[in-house]
């Protein structure tokens, strides 16, 4: 059972190489890609790597090529190099979730192969909850709510954004938040709150 699992795991880079859609490639890159796969299948790994590097010379922002090169290094058991190449591929694989997964898998695998104890997979797309720790994002949400005339929620989010903006000393954002709070308070007819917010905004704008 373990043997079967190991065989599947080790042949994954091969599957990755073979199963990549060719539509991403220009004809020149595609011809090199096919050549690289042939070398790979013959276990001529250095030639395969060389051919992919040649393809990268034509299209160096192609995440598949970087992943393919990582796959070759993985097959050569050059774990460190494979990991970095997979990381490079990961930075380029913007919306390709499948490729991102493959890269993450490879990074984790290489980490384990290098004998490290803690091999957490690299960060996935930032979780939605983390947005709420971001003052700029909160301000954007508040502005959207203000447009939708949801004054109270807009004011709350702006206040939260303000708190975080104070910590990071981002003055511009603080002004923007105070202006938004002023509008929200005026709409809610909370005049004291509106006056305070206006004064705060003017304080920042003073020369």
């Amino acid at each position: 059972m373990i043997k079967v699992l190991l065989t599947v795991l080790l042949s994954l880079p091969l599957l990755v190489l073979a199963g990549t859609p060719e539509k991403n490639f220009s004809p020149a890159v595609n011809s090199l890609w096919i050549k690289a796969i042939n070398y790979y299948n013959k276990e001529e790994f250095e030639k395969a790597a060389n051919t992919i590097e040649r393809a990268l010379g034509i299209d160096h922002n192609n995440a598949y090529l970087w992943h393919g090169l990582a796959g070759v290094r993985f097959a050569q058991e050059n774990w460190k190099r494979a990991a970095h190449l997979a990381k490079k591929s990961l930075t380029l694989a913007k919306k390709d979730k499948a490729l991102q997964t493959k890269n993450r898998w490879m990074i984790t695998q290489t980490c384990q192969k290098m004998g490290r104890k803690y091999c957490a997979p690299p960060k996935r797309t930032i979780s939605p909850t983390s947005h709420f720790r971001d003052p700029h994002h909160l301000y954007q949400l508040a502005a959207k709510l203000l447009k939708k005339e949801k004054w109270a929620r807009a004011r709350l989010l702006a206040l939260r954004s303000l708190q975080l903006a104070k910590k990071t000393k981002t003055n511009r954002l603080q002004i923007k938040n105070w202006v938004l709070i002023t509008k929200a308070c005026e709409s809610l007819e909370k005049w004291g709150c509106a006056r305070h917010a206006r004064n705060q905004a003017q304080f920042f704008l003073q020369p």
Binding site: N61, L92, S130, H131, H136, R172
Partner: peptide
């Protein structure tokens, strides 16, 4: 390539400005 954790904000002078989430 724009990293995943980048978002954009409008600035009057600069236009769209990138920030790290």
């Amino acid at each position: 390539s724009v990293p995943d954790n980048i978002y954009w904000e409008m600035d009057e002078k600069l236009g769209q400005v990138p920030f790290i989430r």
